[in-house]
């Protein structure tokens, strides 16, 4: 089980093909959403916002939106794939065919990651375009490898979280409740739109326990070289988060029912 087998590649290909078949919904819509954020906050309101680091607000915002796109879409992909599989009975097939749990897990989370990376790349390109139009230049990448590391580990973690939530959920409502009441607040309050230095001390304290802060600032450091948190902490939190999400996703995969609703 060290070498990926045909079953793994098949499932990964199926996962990717699945969201590509509905590009409008899975890639285009998220890109339009983040472009609107860029336009409203970055371009029109951003001119009035001053940051102590000296970077423009648009340049500050772009990494946040890039990471938000990656996390959201990775989560969406694995969770909606499983939930619709439960609904249609497709999921039962996974239990019947000769595929290992670890192969299922990796195919699902890498599938989610690819969608996350695709949407975040397009978001980045759109952001760069806005930046060029307003500031006359592109943002040079500060640390491309760090950027890629944080995108990958964040995307994988959120795809894994999507797996756990989808296995746990009893219906579509519970899945969207987790998105609306847990993930979106955590992402929004994790420093996508603002630097924690602008917050009152009380809110700063609250924000530092939000793991999303570390993922988002990791990406921000990779792109513009600015971070609200020490890089070492960002590494540690992202890695521990991945291990944690991997473990619960593996347990849910092993323990949960694959039977259709």
């Amino acid at each position: 089980m060290l070498m990926p087998r045909v079953a793994f590649w098949t499932y990964l290909a199926k996962e990717i093909k699945r969201y590509l078949k509905v590009m409008n919904q899975t890639v285009l819509t998220p890109v339009v959403n983040t472009s609107l954020y860029l336009l409203i906050f970055g371009v029109s309101m951003g001119e009035n916002i001053q940051l102590s680091s000296g970077v423009s607000y648009l340049a500050f915002l772009i990494p946040g939106l890039v990471m938000m796109a990656c996390l959201n879409n990775a989560f969406q992909n694995s969770s909606s794939s499983l939930i619709s599989g439960k609904f249609s009975g497709d999921l039962e097939d996974l239990k019947i065919v000769p595929i290992h749990s670890l192969e299922i897990l990796w195919a699902l989370c890498i599938g989610g990651l690819t969608r996350g990376l695709m949407v975040s790349s397009v978001t980045f390109l759109v952001g760069q375009t806005f930046h060029y139009l307003t500031a006359g230049s592109f943002i040079p990448l500060h640390q491309p490898l760090l950027l890629i590391y944080f995108l990958i580990i964040g995307g994988l973690s959120f795809a894994l979280l999507g797996i756990s939530v989808a296995f746990w959920a009893q219906n579509f409502d519970q899945l969207s409740a987790v998105g609306a009441f847990v993930l979106t607040p955590l992402i929004f309050l994790g420093g996508v739109f603002y630097s924690i230095e602008n917050l009152a001390p009380f809110w700063q304290k609250i924000t530092v326990i939000n793991p999303l802060l570390y993922l988002i600032n990791g990406v921000r450091y990779g792109i513009i070289g600015v971070s609200d948190v020490p890089l070492s902490m960002a590494f540690l939190v992202s890695f521990l988060g991945f291990v944690f999400f991997f473990s619960i996703a593996y347990v849910s995969l092993k323990k949960s029912s694959y039977k259709r609703w």
Partner: peptide, 10 residues
């Protein structure tokens, strides 16, 4: 299986 499986977009 007893029930037909719907494979979505495929």
């Amino acid at each position: 299986p007893q029930e037909v499986i719907n494979h979505g977009y495929f």
